[in-house]
Write a protein that binds this DNA or RNA. Sequence first.
DNA 1: TTAAAAAGCGTAATCGATTACGCGAAAGTA
DNA 2: TACTTTCGCGTAATCGATTACGCTTTTTAA
Lengths: 358, 358
Amino acid sequence: MANQKSVRSKRKTGNKPARPRMADVGKLAGVSACTVSRAFNSPETVRPQILEKVHKAAKELNYSLNPAAKALRLQQTHIFGVIIPTLNHAMFAELVNSFQSTLSESGYAPVIITTGFDNRNIFDHIRAIVERGAEGLLMVGRVEDPRVREFIERSHLPVVTTYSYLEDESIPSIGFDNYQSARQSVDYLLALGHTKIAMIAGPSQGNDRQQSRIQAFRDAREMAGIKEEWPVVENAYDSAYASGANVMHSLLVSHPDLTAVVCSSDTFAIGALQEAKRMGLRVPEDVSIIGHDDFELAQLLDPALSTVKVPAAEMGKRCAEALLNAKVGNNPIVSRKLNASLILRDSAAPPKTKTKAA
Amino acid sequence: MANQKSVRSKRKTGNKPARPRMADVGKLAGVSACTVSRAFNSPETVRPQILEKVHKAAKELNYSLNPAAKALRLQQTHIFGVIIPTLNHAMFAELVNSFQSTLSESGYAPVIITTGFDNRNIFDHIRAIVERGAEGLLMVGRVEDPRVREFIERSHLPVVTTYSYLEDESIPSIGFDNYQSARQSVDYLLALGHTKIAMIAGPSQGNDRQQSRIQAFRDAREMAGIKEEWPVVENAYDSAYASGANVMHSLLVSHPDLTAVVCSSDTFAIGALQEAKRMGLRVPEDVSIIGHDDFELAQLLDPALSTVKVPAAEMGKRCAEALLNAKVGNNPIVSRKLNASLILRDSAAPPKTKTKAA
DNA sequence: TTAAAAAGCGTAATCGATTACGCGAAAGTA
DNA sequence: TACTTTCGCGTAATCGATTACGCTTTTTAA
């Protein structure tokens, strides 16, 4: 007891004023710390008269709960971890925004770490976020690192990956089929009569989404019986509008017979579209362009961009719900395939029959 | 001791396997919990032989630190709170992205809460985020709620507001002068000879950024000696491209003599630009448009958009640094005025001299 | 009025990691 | 060999909130 007291006095002699604890509130209100706790957590078990005293004392001391102590005792932080490539892309920003909103309705909040599309340190990121108290995890795409799989398995934390729907994975995923989403676009162009198509993709290294889309692009060509390879250009997402434009420029110069371009993101598509117009080409008469993501802007462009609508907000919401259900209801997270469908607008049309015209 | 043991056994008989603690790692390695702690935090004080045993045991048990216990003992969470209108807007997403990146270099991470531009519950948001362990706070714009001011003052937490630079505030701010940024645009249009200008703004209710810009717009008119009011249309940021287009349409219909439009965001400006073109008007010959924010897309538009470049990434970075410095170096946060300058491109030009032409 | 039941509150143990203090062993000195 | 210093490790207190348990007081029942 004497020891306790000396420690207290030490607290007060420090340069910074010690944050008040429940015991301090209690002392001021003439009750024990335990009663203060009850006053906040189960006020119906405390006499109204005392309740009032406690509240008054708490206000006077500007008391606020010590989150660490509560978390330690209750083993809960009400935090989920989010590991995501970037927030600097409308798609991911919308996803996280929706994830956060849904979480907050249940008193949870996300802690966010961005990888910059570089998954090499993902294991460290996960450790860092778990050691920060995350009760569950949201990640993007397929996770290759075996250490991560083992860590997740042994930690018994609810984890969900999003963006890609991966049915063969041990980690549940809530997303769409990236192979199909790209395949739709290419098949549509093939059906329109295009035989010479290019693809502007993101970096595929360690990125299952891009890999799937590129694979879909190549498969579509093969299944259409077209021998000649189609160009695939991978480039980074930084300044994606500009690089979309740059790539489009090079493509049109190096492959003058190109009649269509499939883009892995609307950022690329918008850049490509501007560049095509700048070069005096008409879209879709001279070249067709199909995007991916369905940015809000897509429908306002001239011509309006045909693109694949990706359920960004829905993914964020469903992932949040899944994690929440895993926590409160102890329900296992089940994978879920969401829809991503091609929106036909005005940027794709049948190719000019150049051979006949020439 | 017996009590302790029974509790342990209880842990193991529970349905969920108990997370291992340092004591468990120690038991397996044949040392005490204290030595395990040292093995991680000051390995030079532990014999290499024991160090190895501890690491092996930790790996075998898949041990990871209990963040709450550590936070309680050390009084630190390595978390900063972010309270921001939305992530669904490129400007804020970029700001947060940069904030997060900078933080992560020092082992910190942000917990994010979005307000949806509604500051009425900001006090509750702050409490929630502080009770989640935030060691500091980043907020956007001026905070009106007196409860918030008092809470911040008494909590002794480092807090910084961003986006707006507010020199008369008790809470330090790192941002730009929203009055000036808007004023630049309007003055520029006035200098070009425009006398009939409209403004498309965001909701100004409880939003000092919009209020400042609208004020600048009105002041500029008055100081130019123009009697007639200029229209100001406030509208929400949701589907901002489309609403920019809608508002532009109404404006052009209701005010056919309009020669220029100042927008409070590039989202509005881009929508407005598209709509103007769709209505058969030439930009800037028939109508000038100036945006705000300088989205990457702005320079790719046709015509390239003249707009105010806002230092989003810089704000995020500097706020992170300021909070970090306040934590580790105990340096007070000082307000800082950043630059936001008008970028002249091709969407604004002198008005057609209608009177003479007519 | 007396006994039983219920309500209100306090004591003390607990969550898990950290660290001041101290003990014993090893290394160094005379 | 005997003594001092250094090193390595364990014991126990600590951070602050929660809660099982039990004691006291009030209410209800008889």
